[in-house]
Write a protein that binds this DNA or RNA. Structure first.
Length: 212
DNA sequence: GACCAGATTGTCT
DNA sequence: GACAATCTGGTCA
């Protein structure tokens, strides 16, 4: 077992975020998700990463949001309760992972764009066929591959399934005060409409984000 | 570094 | 039939 994985377990008592953590405006949730940990418990072991980049997609006045034109078979999970996974297929070969947010009936979500690998790094390297730690999860398609996720995770509960989100305090020994991070707000990436909206958030100076 | 083309297929119009 | 919340590998500077 690698040091990262050992540390992750040794720090002990990791706390899954509360139900109320997800019950806040989507833009605020996108910001608050920075620094939390996305953890996937697989049959081969635990894979986890610290969220360092997110984007908010809003129901109203956001043409880039999948739910902008109403509910379809693909996006119906976005209209459900916050704290579930919205995983969709794109560009014929990749999946993207989102955290459903907002109130029920209004499709909103937070796209997770990049992670800092924390545990199960050997598994991530295997899943991605890449050994550069900074490049394992520095993009929405990449982190889905690294964590071993697929369309089957669409709709799963992020507090009660094998895929969960742990709070920041769980790992404070590793990320103690000296490594406190500064967050940055910017415009989103990879979309043709709604580019001007400042709905992207990332950890300043992190080498693990998708684009500087 | 920046820019560009190609891969590939589900979803929506 | 067009497009897409991406990634990789190529070219050029």
């Amino acid at each position: 077992m690698r040091a990262g994985a050992a540390n992750f377990i040794a720090f002990g008592f990791p706390m899954i975020v509360t139900r109320s953590f997800f019950n806040r405006p989507t833009t605020e949730l996108a910001h608050q998700l920075l620094g939390t940990f996305l953890v996937h418990d697989t049959p081969h072991g635990r894979i986890a990463g610290r969220i360092v980049e997110t984007e908010a997609y809003l129901f109203r006045d956001d043409p880039a949001c999948h739910a902008h034109r109403g509910m379809t078979k693909r996006n119906e999970v976005m209209f459900g309760s916050a704290g579930h996974a919205y995983v969709y297929f794109v560009y014929g070969m990749y999946y993207c992972f989102n955290v459903v947010s907002g109130v029920e009936g209004e499709g909103e979500a937070v796209l997770i764009r990049a992670l800092e690998p924390v545990a199960g790094i050997d598994l991530m390297e295997k899943n991605r066929d890449n050994k550069n730690r900074e490049q394992l999860c520095n993009g929405p398609g990449k982190l889905v591959l690294a964590l071993g996720l697929n369309g089957g995770h669409n709709g799963c509960c992020l507090r009660k399934s094998s895929l969960r989100i742990f709070d920041r305090q769980s790992f404070r020994r590793e990320y103690r005060e000296g490594r406190e991070f500064v967050t940055v707000k910017a415009t989103r990436i990879g979309i043709s409409q709604g580019k001007e909206l400042p709905l992207r958030f990332y950890v300043k100076d992190s080498p693990f984000i998708s684009k500087k």
